[in-house]
């Protein structure tokens, strides 16, 4: 037995959970799937005095599509993203990225809310929600707050959530029309965190012209990053072809080296991955009826 001792709380309702978080503040850690928190506690890198287990909050497990928005509860497991027909139809990028997260044994427990809150710069889902222009819904005893994905990630393992806030859901705009998407990454071994990753979402008009593009790279900066230069090239009709996307990404990034990989490797790999993601997203969009 390795983790440090803590006081355990298992609220039955979101209201109860928010009151506990308000009362305990920085002393408490939220427990969702535990696939990041428990390893940290086993290493005693995290030593929370209180743990608030949100697994009893059935409200956080619910997902539904209403109008043009897919609302995914914070406790949506990675496994559900991978398998759910609702997600496959309304947020195919999340379904495509989920199999890259760890192993099946991790995905059966790990949650969407946990992955976003943990904000590992090498994680898959933060980059995807940024590429999808999703909104994070956070609740506290003070009320509810809606945070655009672009304002949610602050730095390595840091978000703009306050210590009394609970991520309750993620709202993803459902693609309308000819929208294509793709996710790709390189990791040392399958299931490891990405050394570099890329997500692309493109929208075509009836004539097949790109009207909107979002290109995001992961594992190359303290947070996932949108590469505006690559997006501009796409909406300008890629005058110099797809390799321009690769160059634009490489020129835009300034990655910090990691233990196993140099900054140069990350920059080059991210460029190649972004090109591949864009190519696949374009093919996906072209395959959809005008």
């Amino acid at each position: 037995m390795k983790p440090p001792a803590f006081a355990y709380h298992r609220p039955e309702t979101v209201g109860e959970a928010l009151d506990l978080l308000a009362e305990l503040g920085e002393e408490a850690k939220i427990l969702a799937g535990g696939q990041s928190l428990v390893p940290l506690m086993n290493f005693r890198l995290a030593v929370p005095a209180h743990v608030v287990d949100v697994n009893g909050l059935t409200e956080l497990t619910l997902s539904a599509q209403r109008g043009g928005v897919l609302r995914l509860g914070a406790l949506t497991r990675h496994r559900e993203l991978e398998r759910s027909p609702l997600v496959a139809g309304a947020a195919p990028l999340l379904a495509a990225a989920a199999p890259f997260i760890g192993h099946p044994q991790i995905r059966s427990m790990g949650t969407l809310g946990g992955s976003l809150s943990h904000a590992d710069p090498s994680a898959e889902l933060p980059g995807c929600v940024l590429a999808l222009d999703a909104t994070v819904v956070a609740a506290s005893a003070r009320g509810e707050r809606r945070i655009p994905a672009g304002e949610f990630f602050a730095s390595h393992f840091t978000t703009t959530l306050e210590s009394d806030e609970l991520l309750v859901a993620v709202e993803v705009p459902v693609p309308a029309g000819r929208v294509g998407c793709a996710f790709t990454e390189v990791a040392a071994r399958h299931g490891d965190f990405a050394l570099a990753g890329a997500a692309a979402v493109v929208t075509l008009d009836d004539a097949g012209v790109v009207t909107d593009a979002r290109v995001v790279c992961a594992a190359v900066a303290p947070t996932p990053v949108r590469v505006a230069a690559a997006e501009k090239l796409l909406t300008a009709g890629l005058p110099g072809g797809l390799t321009e996307v690769e160059t634009a990404v490489q020129d835009s990034l300034d990655p910090t080296p990691e233990l196993k990989v140099s900054a140069r490797y990350k920059r080059r790999t991210a460029g190649v991955l972004a090109r591949r993601a864009v190519e696949a997203a374009l093919a996906d969009a072209e395959g959809r009826a005008a």
């Binding site: 355990y8 535990g34 192993h103 044994q105 059966s108 427990m109």
Partner: peptide, 22 residues
Amino acid sequence: CGACTVLVDGEPARSCLLFTVS
């Protein structure tokens, strides 16, 4: 490592990453 894998409600999971109390 995966050595501790058990099934929880039929799904494979790491028993070293689950608090029994939960």
